[in-house]
Design a protein around this nucleic acid. Sequence first.
RNA 1: GGCGGGGUAGCUCAGGGGUAGAGCAGGGGAAUCAUAAUCCCUUGGUCGGGGGUUCAAAUCCCUCCCCCGCUACCA
Length: 528
Amino acid sequence: MAEDRYYITTPIYYVNDKPHIGHAYTTLACDVIARFMRLDGRQVHFLTGTDEHGQKVEKSAKAAGVEPKAFTDQVSQNFRDLVKVMNFSVDDFIRTTELRHIKASQAIWDALVKSGDIYLGSYAGWYAVRDEAFYAESELVESPPGRKVAPTGAPVEWVEEPSYFFKLSAWQDRLLKFYEDNPQFILPASRRNEVLSFVKGGLNDLSISRTSFKWGVPVPGDDKHIMYVWLDALTNYITAVGYPDTDAPLFKKFWPADLHMVGKDILRFHAVLWPAFLMSAGIAPPKRVFAHGWWTNEGQKISKSLGNVIDPLELVRTYGLDQTRYFLMREVPFGNDGDFARKAMIGRINAELANGLGNLAQRSLSFINKNADGKVPQPGALTDADQAMLGAARGLLAKMRASIALQELHKALADWMDVVVQANQYIDAQAPWTLKKTDPKRMETVLYVLAEVLRQLGALIQPFMPDSAAKLLDQLGVPEKDRVFANLGEAGALKPGAALPAPEGIFPRFVDPSEAAPPKSPPKAAKR
RNA sequence: GGCGGGGUAGCUCAGGGGUAGAGCAGGGGAAUCAUAAUCCCUUGGUCGGGGGUUCAAAUCCCUCCCCCGCUACCA
């Protein structure tokens, strides 16, 4: 029996960025899981938000001539807009500049102090003014020989500033034990290995305060310091459920979180620092951190300097919302890096959505509309073929549930697609258009089976493509309240005789504008 | 350099001692309910190179070549 609650989070996004495909991808994966869990009967808390502190924000605000808070009010809106456009079903949107978060951050700080894991020391290192960054001794390069500079070529100087430290070094063994006791804390497994070897290599204490700028959460009792951004940022996950009030209803219900979804670039902060902070503060660590991969654009690494950043809003405009959601979840084994190729996108839309599910629904439903009086057909005795078809559709939930539990989102879609293909094979093999003339009763049975299969397919695709799934279920006359997974299988089977609305297309083919009307004879350049 | 993962059909990848697989692409055919969508059949690979163990190796061992990830404090 599955637990009836589920807490899932995205990272909080750094407001200095414009939302790009990476942000959309992370939150989309969470949205799919959150929707799946809700439909599967769980109470879900789905959190996203924005990280609004740090030196870069302070600088950007200054450059824009406004106070940091006014600046972040403005830019964090971009991320709230993304939530709307992508149809993300978030339950809470947290901002690190909110009072509740500042209180929570200071509270966890106090808890770390109380546990004896914080001490005052000084942070020293090679600092490059030009890069505004510290570099490790090992990162420095000699150029020209004898003179050490940053890998970026910037000159460095040795600087020291007072800083509070977290005794991370003391947590190595406890972290390793934690990983060992919770083998699925880090997924995919390959990432787990990386983290393990990193921790086994030894941990240094971590500088967790700064004095060089002001835009952050003040360290309790020492206003000259602000908290290190990562300690501040990670704390959002408990802020949102009521910390420091560990008796708060949300906290008691939802902590520890079931899943922190993150990009592979920030895995370590979540898989090493965060559990150490939490355990030190006497709070249970989350159950899982999943690190997903990155996208390339037509085989090219994405970067601002290359100018090939993918704008999710643009994708939605061009290909449609559900098509975009489907492609991102379907194209790549979740966890791996993937390539966004226009050709692949169009291929998926047309082959799987338009020709696969769309056409299956259209041919089935319009046949019912024309030949079964526009009502749910009356099934007779089921043949082996019928039962095999129904069995495949009704067995889908269990398969998809198993995949979603391990964040194998692509696998859930592959299993779903298998049933779409099987249904197209079924309709061809049963040929209701022939049965219409030879055995109308049998035809009704076949059509009923098809309608039932479509109902399962529609319900199960809701987490991935909410709007399109709703259209399909509308056409099957399934009331909104009956679209939860508890109604899959025989429990919520369609009632023969129920009137069905006239069907209409769900997924149009994507016609590539650049190929739509090829010129008959390419105009030859006039030579003269 | 160290640790880890990988190199299998044109493309993306699954398989992991016993007659080489899937999807897409390519070729042929059937059907005409449907968004000209669908279905069936099919071409195609000495499984990175070399060596070894074995009755038998894509699969185990050795070695070489190539690719990718991680190797601490920028979100």
